[in-house]
Design a protein around this nucleic acid. Structure first.
Lengths: 243, 243
DNA sequence: GCCGATTTGTCCGTATGTATC
DNA sequence: CGATACATACGGACAAATCGG
């Protein structure tokens, strides 16, 4: 599966760390021994290690070595920094997932929708409402807007499964990056209807709005994900920039 | 100020992009012309560009070039992926900030605190409650726990200003990374007291819990930041991993 | 305190592959 | 098809930090 050399090394080390091959705080093998082990250049090893640093798995110390700081998560959570479909993060957390399409429509963006989504007014769009279930519980209500010209042939059946699999494997689109904003908003009647939250308990929910781009540089998706507050959980590894 | 060559290039390009030197969707100069412009190797240019990709400023396209996708933010927000002190993000957003220490205590971690913070039971800790103000409004209630052995000599006066400045410039500590979890929690009386939120309007708030490590690999800080929901706003640029 | 060995950090040059135009 | 552009990979040199003798 790994297409490149550094990816193979990255995955191999990551698997070993997750399996507990290195103690918490233990040093990994030095770069030079990894070079021998994987029969590659120093740059290639360093690239794999840099990816582990970004993941929060290890930290590097000049003159000392590379330390394992990985701690298994106590609870399942979504991740920041990388794009994952709902199905993918469910699989990563070893959870059962399913998706129900409660609305599938085609529309033309008016001024209000344009302002809300960032698409140009007049754009032809698919508009979907989808509910994501994890281990049988309704957790997320998604409002998806897809640019029809970039995502032709979308159907309700595809949306019940994985839209991203359709984009990547059938349309051969390359998804590149997604700019996301997380906020907290008041709960609405629609939220209540699909997410079965008791307003007396929680009167707001977590909202993740995202603008997603493909390799042609076109923003092809705007999505607003409304998360049940009691199950909302995002994880992030932040690094200090030292310049 | 930039200590390395790739940092100088990174900052220079970033400044130009923010200043609007390149149109949205316009291509940046090719790697080879940047090599000439900055008189450096290809690796160095690529490293600077990789940092801009991570920031969500540009996207690279094999065979085509590097496209500017930077859009100035409509609203101020905190960032994910990088560690910023409250003062630093306020400055980035051109906002006035101040901090009030409402509790400064020293304590020894019992079993309950150990479970909550991740410090070993018996650890000597500083415990602080601080309220952060932005443009005069109380936005964040922070519960900080610092490991006394790693952060000696902390005082209320230091905490009123910038603890991170003290850590980095006085103690010469190197802050490396921070593992953060974002959740939504019910509002408490303490929150209400300091953040002046009307419970009828919002009965919950956004909580960011973080475990922060220094270059010795010790977790020296656990912080729970409780954000006023109506001003909570975090931004993230996620990339699709393509392997 | 010094020195040498080890380890990571920065930077360079080159070769080859792949995608675009 | 050739020229251009980014992607991967290799190898080498020197700097900076750490550690043990």
């Amino acid at each position: 599966m790994p297409k490149t050399k550094y990816d193979r090394i990255y995955r191999d080390l990551k698997t070993k760390i997750e399996a507990g091959d290195y103690e918490y705080q233990e040093l990994l093998p030095s770069e030079s021994s990894l070079i021998n082990e994987y029969d590659c250049s120093r740059n290639t090893v360093r690239r794999a290690i840099a990816a582990l640093v970004r993941d929060g798995y290890v930290q590097t110390m000049q003159g000392k070595g590379v330390r394992n700081i990985y701690r298994p998560l106590a609870q399942a959570s979504f991740t920041l920094g990388t794009i994952e479909s709902f199905r993918e993060s469910a699989a990563r957390n070893h959870q059962e997932s399913s998706t129900k399409v409660v609305c599938f429509a085609e529309l033309t963006a008016d001024a209000k929708i344009a302002r809300k989504t960032g698409f140009a007014a007049g754009s032809e769009l698919y508009y979907l409402q989808r509910v994501h279930y994890l281990d049988g519980k309704a957790l997320i209500l998604n409002h998806n807007y897809f640019l029809k010209s970039a995502v032709p042939g979308l159907t309700k059946e595809i949306a019940e499964n994985s839209i991203y699999a359709y984009l990547e494997h059938t349309l051969h689109m390359t998804i590149v990056n997604s700019i996301r904003i997380m906020t907290v908003e008041k709960i609405t009647e629609i939220d209540e209807k699909y997410l079965e939250v008791n307003q007396n308990e929680y009167n707001c929910l977590a909202v993740v709005s995202s603008h997603t781009y493909n390799s042609d540089g076109v923003m092809f998706e705007f999505t607003q994900s409304r998360h049940r507050p009691d199950y909302f959980r995002f994880q992030d590894n932040a690094v200090r920039r030292r310049f």
